[in-house]
């Protein structure tokens, strides 16, 4: 049985993703398309919210991914700091812009949804505020990567920032809840009994979530491959200069 850590070797990673990436890409496109088409066109209108409710199929998966991607970056940063696998650091770097866009989609669809529902584009509600803060954390993380020339130094510093940032992001979340008990509804999906959502919505929503996860995976793999190549190129140029 091959060790999981083998994939931390850049060459092994490239060879594996050579065949894995196309499969994931196709799966991502297919599942997301099915989920969105199903959700948008083949679900009943909500008796209260009308067809506006269907933005949930974009809003919830993107919001979920926005958080999950940060957690993934945290794990990747830890792996880099502890085991010093370059691929891990580069994967965290590649994930950040995707997370930023997911956060942005979550915020925008939320605004578009909130306008007809609450009569306002924006409210300083704990959830919304937390997402805005998460957006700032993504921005800072990406900006720090962009500012540092030396790739290993960049990986180290951004990893520490991600760690410290995670702690403060959680603190900010509680601060925001404390600060203003808002009008955002509770989580749309709930595992508790007395579920608030019908299966007619849940099934396509789950499909969309899986789809968004696959989209992220595809973008992550593609982005990491790009970062590995860029890093390799940098190394080759430096090599050339030394010789």
């Amino acid at each position: 049985m091959a060790s999981f850590w083998e994939y931390a070797n850049p060459l092994k990673f490239m060879r594996t993703t050579d065949w894995l990436l196309p499969i994931v890409t196709v799966a991502a496109v297919v599942v997301t398309t099915i989920g969105l088409v199903w959700g948008f066109f083949f679900t009943p209108d909500d008796f209260r919210q009308g067809s506006t409710v269907k933005i949930v199929f974009l809003h919830v998966p993107s919001a979920m991914m926005a958080i999950n991607i940060w957690v993934m970056m945290l794990v990747a940063s830890l792996i880099w700091l502890i085991r010093r696998h370059h691929v891990s650091a580069l994967a965290a770097k590649a994930a950040a812009p995707v997370g930023l866009v997911m956060t942005l989609i979550g915020l925008i669809t939320g605004a578009v949804w909130g306008q007809p529902m609450w009569g306002t584009w924006w409210a300083w509600d704990p959830r919304l505020t937390s997402f805005l803060i998460l957006f700032l954390f993504y921005l800072g993380y990406i900006a720090l990567w962009a500012a540092i020339d030396d790739p290993d130094t960049g990986a180290d510093l951004t990893a520490v920032l991600c760690l410290v940032g995670s702690v403060f992001a959680v603190l900010s979340r509680y601060a925001a809840i404390f600060w203003n008990q808002g009008l955002h509804q509770g989580a749309s999906l709930s595992v508790q009994p007395g579920t608030r959502m019908d299966w007619a919505y849940k099934a396509p929503l789950y499909t969309c979530m899986v789809g968004f996860g696959l989209v992220f995976l595809a973008l992550l793999l593609a982005g990491t491959r790009t970062e590995i190549r860029a890093r390799r190129m940098k190394a080759l140029v430096a090599r050339e200069r030394m010789a």
Partner: peptide
């Protein structure tokens, strides 16, 4: 030569 992170050196 198969070093672990050889792609970067």
């Amino acid at each position: 030569t198969g070093g672990f992170d050889e792609a970067f050196l």
